[in-house]
């Protein structure tokens, strides 16, 4: 016992982790990172991504709103409504903020298929609001497949002439966070990275590498069945669902490791083939979702 007590290495070993944690907590307390403002705009979409965000855990929505960002405007969560809400949006534009856009941008008939607000008799279309905010935003995030690639909003025959936010703001750096809906961790994780370290590493399609570097197939729990050529014949079978039309091999997300709904389960864990919701050509190019 005496030797252990005298040895500085062993003593420091048992303290290293704790020291590091305490140091980082101190660092955060002293150099309190400024809370950034956040504007969350809904264009031509289904509000699915904000609903998905409400379901977040580690960190949850409460932590996000309290510790990470000031949510200045959101179509769904803002307490005010009507012209007052739009005024709040205009005020927020004069600050430094992160812009999150969910939903595609409808362009037909001057964008009249997606109205953002009515202000003093004028109709403000979503396209116009997104442009206004994007001109002043520090960072722009396209959350959801519609916003990133066009998705369901611009699926054939595309009656509203929708295009993705990424294409609409083609002169700006837009981070794509595809997924239908996007996982809350992908959104909060990217925002956290923007706050603390700035721009995350992006791949060639502007997706954060930390969430979109591997395909679903790479991390699939049924991958060994694929390698051995054992395939499910119908839904409910426990083998690889590749022959039923699984889109895992062409879809880049970390679903197999991260899982959904408080990390409980994910589609393939529930005997459903991956439908490629985070894929560029979703939904037209990913059809048929099941084939047998």
């Amino acid at each position: 016992m005496n030797i252990i007590k005298n040895c500085p290495i062993i003593e420091s070993k048992s303290q290293t982790a704790m020291t590091l944690i305490n140091e980082s907590i101190e660092y955060i307390k002293q150099n309190a990172l400024p809370k950034l403002n956040l504007i969350w705009l809904e264009a031509t979409g289904c509000s699915g991504n904000i609903i998905s965000l409400l379901n977040g855990e580690n960190p949850g929505l409460y932590f996000l709103l309290k510790k990470m960002v000031n949510l200045k405007y959101d179509n769904t969560l803002s307490p005010s409504q009507g012209e007052k809400a739009f005024e709040e949006f205009l005020d927020a534009l004069n600050t430094e903020f992160i812009l999150v856009v969910e939903g595609a941008i409808s362009l037909k008939d001057g964008g009249l298929y997606s109205i953002f607000a009515r202000y003093k008799g004028d109709i403000i279309t979503s396209a116009k609001a997104v442009k206004m905010a994007a001109d002043k935003a520090k960072y722009i995030l396209a959350v959801g497949t519609c916003s990133s690639y066009g998705g369901i909003s611009s699926a054939s025959p595309n009656p509203s002439d929708s295009i993705s936010t990424f294409d609409y703001l083609n002169d700006k750096t837009v981070i794509r966070i595809p997924g239908c809906p996007a996982h809350p961790d992908w959104v909060t994780g990217t925002i956290a990275h923007l706050i603390s370290f700035g721009m995350p590493l992006l791949d060639e399609k502007n997706r954060p590498l930390m969430f979109y570097s591997l395909t679903v197939h790479d991390g699939c729990t049924r991958r060994s069945f694929f390698n051995k050529g054992i395939f499910a014949k119908k839904l409910g079978d426990l083998e690889c669902m590749f022959k039923l039309g699984c889109r895992g091999p062409v879809t880049k997300t970390d679903c197999p490791n991260r899982k959904w709904n408080q990390y409980v389960n994910w589609p393939i864990g529930d005997n459903t083939p991956c439908i490629g919701c985070a894929q560029e050509t979703f939904p037209d190019g990913m059809e048929p979702f099941i084939r047998y």
């Binding site: 590749f242 699984c246 062409v250 037209d284 990913m286 059809e287 084939r291 047998y292």
Partner: peptide, 13 residues
């Protein structure tokens, strides 16, 4: 048949 991008005999439509 065993090409990973041809799930269920279909490939991007």
């Amino acid at each position: 048949s065993n090409s990973p991008v041809w799930g269920g005999g279909t490939h991007f439509g």
